[in-house]
Amino acid sequence: MWSLMRSPAPGRRLTLRWCLNLGICEVTVYAFSIENFKRSKEEVDGLMELARQKFTRLLEEKNKLQKHEVCIRVIGDLSLLPEDIQKLIAHAVLETKAYSKCFLNVCFAYTSRHEISNAVREVAWGVQEGLLEPRDVSENLLGQCLYTSNSPDPDLLIRTSGEVRLSDFLLWQTSHACLVFQSVLWPEYTFWNLCEAVLRYQYNYSVIQKSRELYSKERSRLQNDTDDTWVQMNIHRLEFRDEEEKSKVFQRLMFQCRTERENRTQNFLKELEKKRECFLQSLCTH
Rank of each mutant, 00 (worst) to 15 (best):
E122D: 11
E35L: 15
S3M: 05
F181W: 06
F55A: 13
Q173C: 09
N105G: 02
E43K: 09
Q53H: 07
N234G: 10
E43V: 05
S112F: 03
C257V: 06
K62W: 07
V29Y: 05
V207F: 03
L238Q: 15
S79C: 12
L59T: 13
R252W: 11
T111N: 06
T226E: 02
N263M: 05
R17K: 13
V231Q: 00
Y203K: 15
M5T: 09
E244P: 10
R241M: 01
R261C: 13
E133S: 12
N193Q: 10
C19A: 13
Q232P: 10
S138A: 11
R73G: 03
N36Y: 08
L4G: 03
Q281L: 15
K54L: 14
T229Y: 09
G162W: 02
A109V: 06
R237I: 10
E245P: 06
D155Q: 08
R237C: 04
L214F: 12
K217I: 01
H91I: 14
S100T: 14
S79L: 07
S175G: 02
E122N: 09
R165W: 02
E35P: 03
T148H: 05
L283M: 14
K87F: 00
E139T: 15
S79Q: 15
S7V: 14
L50C: 04
L47I: 07
L47V: 11
T96A: 12
S40A: 13
A90K: 04
Q251E: 03
V29A: 04
I72K: 00
A9R: 14
P82W: 11
I34C: 02
L22T: 06
E139C: 05
A197T: 00
K210W: 11
E115C: 07
L238C: 12
H114Y: 09
L156E: 04
G162R: 13
E163A: 09
E129C: 13
R159Y: 00
S33V: 00
E213W: 14
Y215G: 01
Q256C: 09
A177F: 01
V180G: 04
Q256I: 00
N267W: 00
A197Q: 02
Y205G: 00
C107K: 03
E60P: 04
L141E: 00
E163M: 08
L94I: 15
I208K: 08
L146I: 10
E245Y: 05
F37D: 02
R241W: 03
H236A: 14
G130V: 04
L58F: 07
S33F: 01
N193G: 10
L80M: 08
Y110N: 03
Y201Q: 10
A92R: 02
F103I: 11
G76D: 09
C145G: 06
L280A: 13
L171A: 15
W18R: 04
L47G: 07
L272N: 05
V29M: 03
L171R: 07
L157V: 11
I158V: 12
L14E: 10
L81T: 09
F181I: 02
F32N: 01
C284F: 01
M233Q: 08
L272C: 06
S112R: 00
L253Q: 08
E139A: 09
N36T: 07
I235V: 11
E60N: 11
S40Y: 10
Y215D: 07
R12A: 13
G126C: 12
Y189V: 04
N21R: 15
N234P: 02
N193A: 04
A177T: 04
A197C: 03
Y110I: 03
I158L: 02
L238V: 04
L65T: 04
